Computed example of a mutant assay.
Amino acid sequence: MSKALAHAKIVPRWSNERGHADHGWLNTYHTFSFASYYDPRFQNFGSLRVLNEDRVSGDNGFPTHPHRDAEIFSYILSGELTHRDSMIKRGSEAKQGDDFYRMKRGDVQFTTGGTGIAHSEQNESDEPVHFLQIWALPWGKGLTPRYHTKTFDEYLKRAAFLPILSPLKAGPGASPAEEKAAEPTLKDTIPIHADLIMAAGIIGVDKRFKWTVGADAVRQTQDRHVYIHVPMTKNGSAKIRIDGREDAVLGEGDGAFISNVNAGDVLSVESVGEAEAEVVVLDSD
């Protein structure tokens, strides 16, 4: 199969070369420099700043800690993760919306750190939780802290790449009223204060999904930065091929930096392993 996007530069980020730490209660892999892992080559990619793949054992988690001036989101792969801040009490009824806190597979929890927030993330079940924690650099500092949580349908992820986050429609100059309305550029997504789109798909064996760079939702249309990640969900049986390239075949835990692409370019992602492949796309300025 020939390259559909000959101008695109695709550089794999192999799983075994990521930062890694096993603390017993937390087994974590870092695509970018984070905490005690530092590599000057991997600081950010466009506005994408952090991509951690974490497993937290039962009855463990991250105690209350602060964040500011970062867009932070968790994508739950399996198990449960409980988010709590000063407004959410233990035992409160879980519900969809800004106050929803007990997350399961299919849920995405989003935080605008802005001027400063503090929260905890705990696994209050007996089973491990497996999730991606992702940070993006916002288009401005001093934003008003905000939470969003939304569930995304597995069936839709099996049909095509499903957009999950898209830029706040009002953009960097949003008024307080527009911030409160929190309307995303793409319907049924979570709004983010960055020129970034996140999407996820579950690609059946020998099936192919296509991702249109920018998804008709971004301000910067030239020189986009697309990162594709394959979470470790199928015990090593999942594998994908990007743009038909044999040097861009990724296994579980692997990712790829894709540059020299513009809005409207179409990236092909084919499942070539023995099990369906869950794939996350992070398309930023």
Score class of each variant (00 low, 15 high):
A94Y: 13
F32G: 08
P172G: 06
S57T: 05
D153S: 11
M87Y: 03
I202N: 09
H30V: 12
P191H: 08
A159P: 03
P145V: 05
Y37M: 02
T189D: 02
S47N: 05
P163V: 05
A118R: 10
D283W: 15
D126E: 12
V218T: 09
D285Y: 07
H67N: 13
S92Q: 13
G173T: 07
S15P: 14
R224L: 09
D216T: 12
E178C: 02
S57A: 07
T149K: 07
V261P: 00
K150H: 11
R55C: 12
R49T: 09
T112Y: 10
P167L: 03
T64G: 14
H23T: 14
P176G: 04
T185V: 15
I76Y: 06
W25K: 07
F257W: 12
A8G: 03
H148I: 06
G97V: 01
E53H: 11
E274S: 08
L81K: 03
E246G: 08
K207W: 10
S78I: 07
P63Q: 06
D39P: 03
E71V: 11
K95F: 01
K187D: 15
Y227G: 04
T31Q: 05
T144A: 14
L250A: 03
I192G: 13
R245C: 13
T31N: 09
G19L: 04
I240N: 00
G251W: 01
S78E: 09
V226L: 12
H193M: 15
E93H: 09
A200E: 13
Q43N: 05
L168W: 04
S166A: 11
F34V: 12
H148S: 09
M1C: 12
P167Y: 04
K234A: 15
E246Q: 10
N123K: 09
Y37H: 02
P231V: 11
P231C: 13
M198Y: 14
W14H: 15
G273L: 03
V280T: 11
P66I: 07
F110T: 08
H83Q: 00
F62E: 05
A277I: 06
D54E: 12
R105G: 12
W139F: 15
D243V: 00
L48S: 08
D85E: 07
T185M: 15
G19H: 01
L186D: 12
L77Y: 01
T31I: 14
M198C: 12
K89W: 08
H225N: 11
I240Y: 00
I190L: 12
G24S: 00
E178H: 02
I72E: 04
L48K: 05
G171A: 10
A194R: 02
S237Q: 12
G273V: 09
R13Y: 11
G24Y: 00
K169A: 15
D195R: 05
K239A: 01
L77G: 01
S125C: 06
R68V: 06
G61I: 07
